[in-house]
Nucleic acid binder design. Structure first.
Length: 288
DNA sequence: AACGCATACAACCGCGAACGT
DNA sequence: CACGTTCGCGGTTGTATGCGT
């Protein structure tokens, strides 16, 4: 069906985001919450398409994002999850608090893939590259160790080939969705059409993960649209100085560009972030 | 110091799913 | 049920930065 472009390309800016654009987007989201991405650029005064705004927010501006490289534990978790979920980065990301699918995907492609290859493990199948097959188990309730105990270098057997990721989306998603409500121990068996081998109930780590489906996502920043007063501080939220610390540090924007007074920009047309007072704490620009 | 290559990451594109009418 | 719209996902590309020669 004739699909419309996500934006009409006319007057739509592309390329790297500027600090000013970031400011506008942050302010808008903080003020209005996340809704109707298509309308966001217009309402926020951005010459971007909604898609771009959503991406920018979810991948970079979200206050709950962790910055920096994935830790060893996170990396291991990604590997383990990838073995089960395949390239479903969003699913994987949902289990790593503060990490985005894009980030994980990038990290996978740039670091982990190489790492696994070096170790003689096929990053796609998670099987040893030189071994014809490693299927030592007949069921999916195989002995899989927790990542913390996994040593891929010496024990590639720990990496179980994933179920074919292509066509098991529904079953996987369903099992995931249900996992939070259905007690463990009932999968792995004569479940309906169980080609879905994405769960290993005797895997403590995965049990934990499944049972805690999407627990990591902080609900607080899914702001409700604020009341007229727009005092987001009314919402029960963690201290903003923590979550925007990186913004305040201006590490990524460049101090000179973003400016320490960025949140005091009265020209932004919306109630700006400094109405939040950053947790009732005014930010003082450091010298220099 | 200059150049070329490799790497890492941000951003874009296209597709399919979900939802509304 | 068919169609249109919007959103989210995954693959891919572009660009900035680092490193070696």
């Amino acid at each position: 069906m004739g699909r419309q472009p996500c934006c009409d390309k006319l007057g739509v800016k592309k390329g790297p985001w500027t600090a000013e654009e970031d400011k506008k987007l942050i302010n808008f989201i903080l003020t209005n919450g996340q809704c109707c991405w298509r309308a966001v650029p217009k309402l926020a005064g951005l010459l971007r398409c909604g898609k771009s705004c959503r991406l920018r927010w979810t991948n970079y501006l979200r206050p709950d994002l962790k910055r920096g490289l994935l830790t060893e534990a996170e990396e291991q978790l990604v590997i383990d999850l990838h073995a089960r979920l395949g390239n479903r980065w969003s699913k994987i990301a949902a289990r790593l608090p503060g990490r985005t699918d894009n980030e994980i995907k990038n990290h996978w492609n740039t670091h982990i893939k190489k790492k696994l290859t070096k170790m003689g493990i096929d990053p796609v199948t998670h099987e040893p590259i030189n071994k014809p097959s490693i299927t030592t188990t007949t069921t999916n309730c195989s002995s899989q160790q927790t990542p913390s105990t996994v040593d891929h270098q010496s024990e590639p057997e720990n990496i179980r080939p994933p179920s074919p990721p292509q066509k098991t989306d529904e079953s996987l998603a369903t099992s995931e969705e249900n996992s939070s409500s259905s007690p463990p121990g009932t999968c792995c068996g004569a479940e309906s059409g169980s080609s879905d081998n994405n769960r290993d109930d005797d895997d403590p780590l995965m049990n934990f993960l499944w049972e805690n489906d999407t627990p990591f996502l902080d609900p607080w920043w899914d702001f409700p649209a604020p009341p007229a007063g727009n005092t987001i501080n009314n919402v029960d939220m963690p201290p903003w100085e923590e979550n925007f610390a990186w913004l305040l540090d201006c590490q990524d924007f460049g101090v000179e560009e973003f400016g320490y007074g960025c949140f005091n920009d009265v020209d932004m047309g919306v109630n700006n972030i400094n109405t939040l007072n950053m947790g009732d704490k005014l930010y003082n620009a450091p010298p220099g």
